[in-house]
């Protein structure tokens, strides 16, 4: 693996880490969701500092070049994240539905009660 690629990876990893830490501090990202991204940073750093690991894995998995392998894992990690996000999205959609239903019912009951109270006052 070229020194240049390794350098690139280290810079990228540090940049991503900076963004994640800042986002968590500024409450833009929940801590619980930051771990997965930090894991990716960690992966990048491991590969950059110990390229031997990747080369060994390449041989094991019959992949031609280490960079291909990094792309492969990158894509897999992103797919995993988007799948996880879709499950989160579904969960939140369910919660929003429930909130909408409860708010709508409460609103109806409140308005009905107000209407009845007004009727009573008139009589």
């Amino acid at each position: 693996m070229s020194v240049f690629l390794r350098g690139e990876m280290i810079v990228m990893a540090l940049l991503v880490m900076l963004i994640i830490v800042r986002s968590v501090n500024k409450k833009r990202l929940r801590l619980q969701y930051s771990f997965f991204w930090l894991l990716i940073v960690l992966g990048l750093l491991v590969v950059a500092f110990f390229p031997g690991v990747v080369i060994w894995l390449c041989g094991l998995m019959q992949i031609q070049t280490p960079s291909n392998m990094i792309y492969l894992f990158g894509i897999l990690a992103l797919l995993l994240i988007s799948f996880y996000q879709t499950t989160l999205l579904s969960k939140q959609a369910d919660r929003i539905t429930r909130l909408t239903q409860l708010i709508s019912i409460e609103k109806y009951l409140t308005e009905k009660k107000e209407g009845e109270d007004r009727e009573k006052e008139r009589h």
Partner: peptide, 14 residues
């Protein structure tokens, strides 16, 4: 007519 208006469109299921 008693009518609960959903504050957001939920679709028939919701």
């Amino acid at each position: 007519v008693p009518c609960i208006t959903l504050v957001q469109n939920l679709g028939i299921g919701g």
